[in-house]
Every structure is written in structure tokens, then in C-alpha cells.
Design a protein around this nucleic acid. Structure first.
Lengths: 261, 261
DNA sequence: CGAGCGATTGAGGTTGATCAATACTTGTGG
DNA sequence: CCACAAGTATTGATCAACCTCAATCGCTCG
């Protein structure tokens, strides 16, 4: 498995390595971590609310969502999972899962058993702390979403989400020229933001008319990052990213960000 | 400090001990954990968004809240902290705090330095896992709140919160006859639920009229637990409590729950 | 080519927000 | 013990954001 899946292709390892430089020992442990690879089509449940999973799910590529359902069937998406995320890492210490995880697009995933993860944590305290930290960042995102859903209007709410996705996707190299692929229906967007599909649609039209976003298919382009940030009242600090991950986006927009004068 | 603050008075130790029986070693480590005691009046900030704290805050008694502020000053309370909670435990692994923690009522708190906590975690992996788990339960509550705020109407939303507080307070012995002290203004309730003070007020009146709740000062009584649960679509499993913590509440209401036939 | 999903549009409704007073409550100083 | 100040609860009237229901349109795919 190692040969066919080198660590530089493992977004989890890349992520951890950017937080603190991994020792050779730690890197090897992560490389050797048994992982069952799978490709899952879109709109499939990976685990369901109420399950008692014995493994976690690392997303290698694609988009996933965690969600919960109300008694009368209304859905709330509580997070989007992208490459490098383990959307059900909390199942490691919580017996019964309080949310479902499902794919929004086709995903390549790696399943890691709880046993292997516990073993890894026991042997490598720094990795344990880093994984703990990952779940704490998830929590910080939840808090920001609560503020977003509870206290902002639809227009700013959507803008905020688009900002967050830009920054998170940028950190894993999935952004080019302030544009990214967002394979998500308007209904799913609404489920994440606590608004109706119909309303999402109308607000998106307004945002397009205002020149805040440009869409082509599932591709979302952001012509004026500063303005979108302002509309979304977006401050990325809750994402706890390294300065390097943010720098590319804060360069002046409109000229190739790779070059210097 | 030990003599004047025995472990059975430490709600954190009580909580951990209910999750898994502490070894003598672990208990002693917790007993000896240095803790700076303080009494903080209501409506004081303990830490503020943007701070880089070097210690965590264990609530020994009273009510606290974590909150975030929108650019135009609207506040979202993201959690209520009660005895045994460490509302800023995430600061242990997140450099800059993304929320404030403030008192809602007078609180007795114990400050524990990050260094001491890290030390404790290093020496006692089971305690480390238990603390990690505590932050994961916080996350589960965040997710439930997102569902509540995003997808339920004010009436059911308030009911849900009252259910959650009943169960959580019950687990730390602060409930008697389906009634508890909730020293929280209607404005704060609104800030937690994403609704206006005015609207909170009107909905509460409706709930009183419907016999769902009875209030006297800050005391909240629940005459019909089953009905409130139903209105709030409340299922406590996300709180990850032990069966014992829940049993008392699920006994038939209306006769002394201590007695058996 | 029709099915099916997702996007869009239109026409009313509702919930909950806003603004602006007015009543309570409670702690405080006299 | 009383009057006052300040905070909290309550009320009324009006308004806006967002929802619901019900079509219609467009695209992709078998």
C-alpha cells in the first residue's frame, strides 16, 4: 500500500506536517498507518447518525458533508469535509455517532480503524495532540457557523461560507485564481446555511448581479476577494491556519500571485 | 489547597469518575492539579476573543457562556457552561481563542495552567483521552445547536434548549423535581438561540400559557417533561451521558422519583 | 426522446425583526 | 422603610426576510 500511496499524496500527512514538522519516526508511523482505500460515488452515506463505527474516514479527494436531521425531516449540514479532513474523527471517543457523513461528490476515502488510531496516538503523543487539535478546529468552525446561521442574513451568510471554502480549499491547493470547484447543489447550500433552496437561488442571483461571484457549472469564481470578505464579515483566524496558507490569498488580486514585481 | 477543596467537591473529578472509574493514581493526580480559585461576579469576561490564554477555566459553580460577536455587534452565544465544564478547554491546543467566555451569574472558577494540563495529559493518557472526549461532546452540542438554530422555529428551539439544560444540570445534581435555576436574561436566551429579546418574550408567554413551563424568578419548572421533550424534538443521546445520569429523569413524573412502589 | 434532477420564477403567507413605549423588579442610598 | 436608578420584562404597531406551494425551464443521461 505504501508504494502505491506515497505520503506526499496523503493530505492528512501534508496537513500535519504543515502544523509541526514531523519527525522521521512520526512520518513513518503515519505512512504505515493501515488504510482501506475506497471510491464512493456522490450522495452516498458513509456512516449514519446512531451508528457505532469502529473506524474513521479520511477524505482523500472530493466533497463530503456531516449532517443531522430534525424530527420532521429538515436537514442541517453541520460541516463540509474536503481533502485531508476526517469528518468523523470524533467517533474515536464518542460511542454513538450524533451525525451522518455523506458524500456530496465522488470521493476517494481512506478508512482507518479506531484501534489503529488509538495505537498511533499512544505511541506518538504529538500526533495525538495534533489530531485532538483537528477536532478542536472543527469545533471552532462549528462556532463560526452558529454565529453565521444565528446572526447573519442570508446574503452575508452565503458570502461567509464562500469565503471559508476559498480559504480552506486554498490551504490544500484546490484554488486557482480565486476560483474553486464547489460540487454542491443549491439545496445542499441551503441545508448548510439554514435557508430554503428557493431563497438560496434568489440570493445567489443577487450576488451574481452585484459582481460578488461568478459561477460556471460547479465552478465558483470570486472576482473581488476583498469585497466578498467584507460582505461575509470574514476573518479566517478561527480556521487556525498557518500564515503561509493565508499569504497567497492576501496578495493583491488581479495579477499572477506567483510573481513579484 | 487539598484539604480545603476535597475531590468530591470538584465537579470535574466527579464527571471524569462517572465516565470511567479513576485509578488511585489518576485521582491523586487530579487532586493535586494546581488550581487557582476565584469568585467572579456576573457579566464579567473571563477571556476574550482574540486572547492567547495560558490557562483554562474550570467552572465550579454558576453559569457561564461562550460567545462570538458579529461585525455589527450582534452576539451569538455558542454554549452555556455549568459546573464541571471547562468552556475554554480548546484553548489548550488552539493558539488564539476564537470566542469569549463570560459569566452569566456569579461563578466560582478554578484556573488551571496549560502547562499543568499538558503535564497531566502526558502522564495520564486516559485522562488525556477523557479531556479530548469532553471537547468532542462540546462539538456534539455545537452540532445540535446548529440544527436547532438553523432548522427549528423559535418555539421548538427554546423548548429544546430547556430540555438540554434540564438533562445537563441533572447530571451534575442541580435539578430537583424537574425544576432548575436558570439565571439567564431573555436577551441572553435570544443570543443563544438566534432570536430577538422581544420574540423570546412572546414565545415564552406562549409556552407558559401552553403549560410547558412555569417560571418564578430565575427558576424554571417543567410540569410535563414528556411533552416538552416532544415539542423540542429532544433526544439526549448527543450529550453522551451515562445511563445513570438519564435514568432519574425518565422515571415517571408526578411522584417522588426516589421511591419505588 | 422522455425521465429526472436541479435551477428558476411567481404569488401569496408567516415568522420573527424593528422601533418605541411602558411596566416591573431589584439593589442602593438616604 | 421609601424613592430612585438601572436593568429586565412586556406590549403594540409596523415591516422585512424568508418560507411555502406550485409551476416552468434546462440540462444530462440512459
Amino acid at each position: 500500500m505504501h508504494a502505491s500511496f506515497p505520503s506526499q499524496d496523503n493530505p492528512l500527512i501534508r496537513k500535519l506536517d504543515s502544523v509541526f514538522t514531523l519527525t522521521e519516526d512520526e512520518r513513518q508511523a503515519l505512512d504505515k498507518l493501515p488504510m482501506q482505500l475506497a471510491v464512493i460515488k456522490d450522495d452516498q452515506d458513509i456512516v449514519r447518525e446512531g451508528d457505532r463505527p469502529t473506524r474513521c474516514c479520511l477524505i482523500l479527494s472530493g466533497f463530503a458533508a456531516t449532517s443531522k436531521i430534525t424530527a420532521d425531516g429538515k436537514r442541517q449540514i453541520t460541516s463540509f469535509g474536503i481533502a485531508g479532513d476526517i469528518p468523523d474523527l470524533h467517533s474515536l471517543h464518542l460511542r454513538v455517532l450524533d451525525n451522518s457523513v455523506s458524500t456530496l461528490s465522488t470521493c476517494r476515502v481512506g478508512f482507518i480503524t479506531h484501534d489503529d488510531l488509538r495505537d498511533l496516538c499512544e505511541r506518538h503523543p504529538r500526533i495525538a495532540a495534533a489530531l485532538w487539535r483537528e477536532t478542536l478546529i472543527d469545533g471552532a468552525i462549528f462556532r463560526e457557523w452558529m454565529l453565521n446561521i444565528g446572526r447573519r442574513e442570508a446574503y452575508n451568510r452565503i458570502a461567509h461560507l464562500f469565503c471559508e471554502m476559498l480559504v480552506r480549499l486554498s490551504a490544500v491547493g484546490l484554488v486557482e485564481d480565486y476560483a474553486y470547484d464547489l460540487p454542491i447543489t443549491q439545496a445542499e447550500l441551503g441545508d448548510a446555511l439554514g435557508i430554503t433552496t428557493v431563497h438560496v437561488n434568489r440570493v445567489l442571483q443577487q450576488m451574481r448581479a452585484d459582481g460578488l461571484i461568478v459561477t460556471q457549472g460547479t465552478r465558483l469564481a470570486i472576482p473581488d476577494w476583498d469585497r466578498l470578505k467584507e460582505v461575509g464579515e470574514f476573518n479566517p483566524s478561527y480556521l487556525q491556519l498557518e500564515q503561509g496558507d493565508l499569504a497567497a490569498l492576501d496578495a493583491a488580486q488581479g495579477r499572477p500571485s506567483q510573481r513579484r514585481a
